[in-house]
């Protein structure tokens, strides 16, 4: 065993050499930048970074700020709903398209199109659609239902769901395409076998096909979750954080603190908290996912 070790290191030498620039960049930019940000989150940096140590002051202020608490709450609501709904909608759409329907290409393209649009465009389009003056509410009232009210973006309690609708509209297409690719990867023999055994289609999907699509689900999960954590442009374009501060999100708090309040320290503290939150979710998951395999080798 011990004699084999050096050989292991030099195996696939070309690949390892090729990966060096990326490894160096990742270490320097990501790890270095992260460490720098965390260090400066303990300082009283204003418009420019300043090494003026204040300990945990920035964090105390952060967790005493109502706007930050609302931002965290909004991210939790948006994230959870987005995660569940985008998977459900995306998978159902994929399963429907997988029924060998006509015009599959056309339908697939139409559903994927919103993903080609930036969040800024998505946000503006849905801002107009949800605007009571000339959006859905106006159209329904025009048809004759005079008392119809639908103005989520103007009602603080549900404004975040107005944003969610836009996010789902934009994101579902991508999930559908990934799921469809996963479904196409399932061997036809599996379906035939299930049919012969008399298993209903929905049971086949839930107990056989979905477990077999695990890698696709994990890829999609990573894409969707990173999209949720960094949601910023959608909010800025659609609501600007309003009405009031009802749709604030952490990323927008960080931006506003750094570039509007000229308070880098506070922005760094907030972004460090975002990192900690992500780490708390990702690290246990990564250990579960990849940690187990080592012992089997």
């Amino acid at each position: 065993m011990s004699a084999d070790r050096p050989n292991q290191l030099f195996r696939n030498m070309n690949a390892k050499v090729a990966a060096i620039p990326m490894i160096v960049t990742a270490l320097f930019v990501f790890v270095g930048g992260t460490a720098w940000t965390i260090v400066y989150s303990f300082t009283k940096s204003g418009l420019l970074p300043r090494m003026k140590w204040v300990g945990l002051d920035q964090y105390e202020r952060l967790w005493g700020t109502k706007r930050w608490l609302i931002a965290i709450e909004n991210l939790a609501i948006y994230g959870l709903c987005m995660l569940v709904l985008v998977f459900v909608i995306g998978f159902i759409l994929a399963a429907l398209i997988d029924q060998k329907i006509r015009f599959e290409n056309t339908i697939r393209t139409v559903i994927l199109y919103p993903y080609a649009m930036s969040f800024v465009v998505t946000g503006l389009v849905w801002q107009w659609i949800l605007n009571p003056e000339f959006g859905i509410q106006n159209i329904v009232r025009g048809i004759g239902w005079e008392s119809f009210t639908f103005d989520p973006l103007y009602t603080p309690e549900i404004a975040i769901f107005g944003v969610l609708i836009a996010g789902l509209w934009q994101g579902s297409g991508l999930v559908m395409v990934l799921m469809l690719a996963g479904l196409r990867g399932i061997d036809h023999e599996v379906w035939k076998a299930a049919r012969i055994d008399g298993i209903p289609a929905w049971k086949t999907y839930i107990f056989i096909v979905i477990p077999m699509m695990r890698p696709v689900f994990i890829t999609t999960l990573v894409l969707v979750v990173t999209g949720i954590v960094k949601v910023f442009d959608l909010i800025v374009a659609q609501t600007g954080g309003g009405p009031g501060i009802a749709t604030e999100v952490p990323a927008k708090y960080v931006y506003d603190m750094m570039f509007r309040n000229n308070n880098l320290g506070q922005g760094f503290a907030a972004s460090t908290m975002m990192l900690v939150t992500v780490a708390l979710i990702v690290i246990p998951w990564a250990i579960l996912e990849f940690g187990g395999k080592r012992s089997n080798d």
């Binding site: 204003g46 706007r67 603080p156 009405p243 009031g244 501060i245 506003d256 309040n261 000229n262 506070q266």
Partner: peptide
């Protein structure tokens, strides 16, 4: 007042006037 204070007050009144 510093921009930090001014913007904190702005946020307070955004919230106050909307709710």
């Amino acid at each position: 007042a510093t921009p930090d204070t001014v913007n904190q007050i702005n946020t307070l009144f955004t919230e106050f006037f909307a709710d």
